[in-house]
Design a protein around this nucleic acid. Structure first.
Lengths: 163, 163
DNA sequence: TCGATATAATAACAGGCGTTATAATATCTC
DNA sequence: GAGATATTATAACGCCTGTTATTATATCGA
């Protein structure tokens, strides 16, 4: 029997909750023949129709190849279509197909349930603090990834950083 | 050019920062021929030598099969060994091999750098609030996953939930 | 003690993701 | 206008992870 002496580490915590929430969301998505990742793509695309794969990748904070693969599957399921860009023949513009609408509608409700579930017992100001902190972390890591391998430059932030 | 009107969603944020941190950590781990997941396993095992794969899985919040596969790779790299349990012939006890020590020692320093990097511009009390909130989220989701498909039961919590 | 049941580990399958390399197309510069 | 350079998308490869099913071994109960 294992026991857990050491205080929970922030780095481990972030990975754990993301994976656990992912498993939970995947189970829900699977009831509509989708995955969590595909679900996310549909949501982002519904908010911004006609995005290129590259722009959608930036919006999802993944590599373009990842979007390409997700679109492959969603396209074969008839939920998304690739429309050639008229100005630039390298680019695909992405559009939701009608079949995506009911799927999205039902999942939207399930999504709210997930938000409620993970937030049980945590007050709203704490959630707000966490969100602001996570926004900052996302900025920090994005910077670090962009800046190369070296230790990231301190961010001189004129706006309120966290809360 | 995409623009990002809507306020950052907590669910998206959690997934994004975990993935981004994962990419960052993976790049570091790769300099020692490892992956982030293998690195985590080594850390947990160093803290609790002799764990079974099942217990280690619980500690890492992943399925046992995932630990089994990670151990396959770490074993082939000579960093971990499987020792048969004398009482129960189904279980393997896991031990770090000497080769793991220097790897772990170097990575420990890099790990502290990551923690510093992600926390840039976020004050300590905010970090503490976030940690407590994440501990609670982990509890909530773990409950929900265990409790089956239905919406998780509200958690009546006698202890302070988040900060 | 023996048959039913539970448990640890693993195999097969499927989906997600980044990295590196490549093809096609644009754009920039001389 | 042509060659150099940049950009969009994709293929190949490898690793991470869960789900379902299976095997080996323990344990429990009649």
């Amino acid at each position: 029997m294992a026991n857990y002496p050491q205080e929970e580490d922030v780095l481990f915590l972030i990975g754990d909750i993301a994976r656990l929430i992912g498993v939970y969301a995947d189970r829900i998505a699977r009831t509509r023949g989708m995955s969590k990742a595909q679900w996310v793509l549909l949501i982002k695309l519904a908010q911004n129709p006609g995005l290129s794969q590259k722009d959608l990748a930036q919006m999802m904070a993944v590599e373009p190849i990842t979007v390409g693969r997700l679109v492959d599957r969603l396209e074969s399921h008839g939920l998304v279509e690739r429309v050639p860009d008229e100005q630039d023949r390298r680019v695909w513009r992405l559009q939701l197909l009608p079949a995506a609408e009911p799927v999205l509608a039902e999942l939207a409700e399930r999504r709210r349930e997930i938000v409620t579930m993970i937030g049980q017992g945590i007050d709203d100001t704490t959630i707000a603090t966490m969100r602001a902190g996570m926004v900052r972390i996302k900025t920090n890591v994005s910077h670090a990834l962009k800046g190369g391998d070296s230790f990231p430059q301190p961010i001189t932030d004129s706006t309120k950083a966290a809360v």
